[in-house]
Computed example of a mutant assay.
Amino acid sequence: MTLEILTPDKTVYEGEVISVTVPGTSGSFEVLKNHAPIISTLEDGNVIIRTSAKDEQVMYIKGGVIEAYHNKVVVLAEGLG
Score class of each variant (00 low, 15 high):
1 M>F: 07
1 M>E: 04
2 T>Q: 13
3 L>I: 01
3 L>D: 07
4 E>C: 09
5 I>K: 08
6 L>W: 11
6 L>F: 11
6 L>Q: 10
6 L>N: 11
7 T>Q: 01
7 T>M: 06
8 P>L: 09
8 P>D: 10
9 D>A: 14
9 D>Y: 13
9 D>H: 12
9 D>T: 12
9 D>R: 03
9 D>E: 15
10 K>L: 12
10 K>E: 11
11 T>R: 14
11 T>N: 12
12 V>R: 00
14 E>A: 11
15 G>K: 08
15 G>A: 11
15 G>F: 00
17 V>L: 04
17 V>E: 06
18 I>D: 10
18 I>G: 12
18 I>S: 09
19 S>V: 05
20 V>D: 02
20 V>S: 02
21 T>Y: 03
21 T>D: 01
22 V>P: 02
23 P>S: 02
23 P>Q: 05
23 P>Y: 04
23 P>V: 05
23 P>T: 08
24 G>D: 04
25 T>Y: 05
25 T>Q: 10
25 T>P: 04
26 S>M: 10
26 S>G: 06
27 G>D: 07
27 G>S: 07
28 S>L: 01
28 S>K: 04
29 F>M: 01
29 F>A: 06
29 F>D: 03
30 E>G: 12
30 E>M: 15
30 E>Y: 11
31 V>R: 03
32 L>A: 14
33 K>R: 13
33 K>F: 11
34 N>F: 15
34 N>S: 14
34 N>V: 10
35 H>G: 09
36 A>N: 11
36 A>T: 13
36 A>W: 03
36 A>S: 12
36 A>C: 00
37 P>D: 02
37 P>L: 06
38 I>L: 09
39 I>W: 08
41 T>G: 13
41 T>S: 13
42 L>Q: 06
42 L>W: 03
43 E>Y: 11
44 D>K: 05
45 G>C: 08
45 G>Q: 01
45 G>P: 14
46 N>A: 13
47 V>G: 02
47 V>Q: 03
47 V>I: 06
47 V>T: 05
47 V>R: 04
48 I>G: 00
49 I>P: 12
50 R>M: 02
50 R>G: 03
50 R>N: 08
50 R>K: 04
52 S>Q: 02
52 S>T: 01
53 A>L: 00
55 D>F: 05
55 D>M: 00
56 E>D: 10
56 E>M: 13
56 E>Q: 10
57 Q>E: 12
57 Q>R: 10
58 V>H: 10
59 M>Q: 01
59 M>H: 00
60 Y>R: 14
61 I>R: 05
62 K>E: 09
62 K>R: 14
62 K>F: 05
63 G>P: 02
63 G>K: 00
63 G>A: 09
63 G>T: 06
64 G>S: 09
64 G>Q: 07
65 V>H: 10
66 I>G: 00
67 E>I: 02
69 Y>E: 15
69 Y>C: 11
70 H>V: 07
70 H>N: 15
70 H>W: 12
71 N>Y: 02
72 K>T: 10
72 K>S: 09
74 V>C: 06
74 V>G: 04
75 V>E: 05
76 L>S: 08
76 L>M: 15
78 E>G: 14
78 E>I: 08
78 E>N: 15
79 G>S: 06
80 L>H: 13
81 G>F: 11
81 G>K: 03
81 G>L: 09
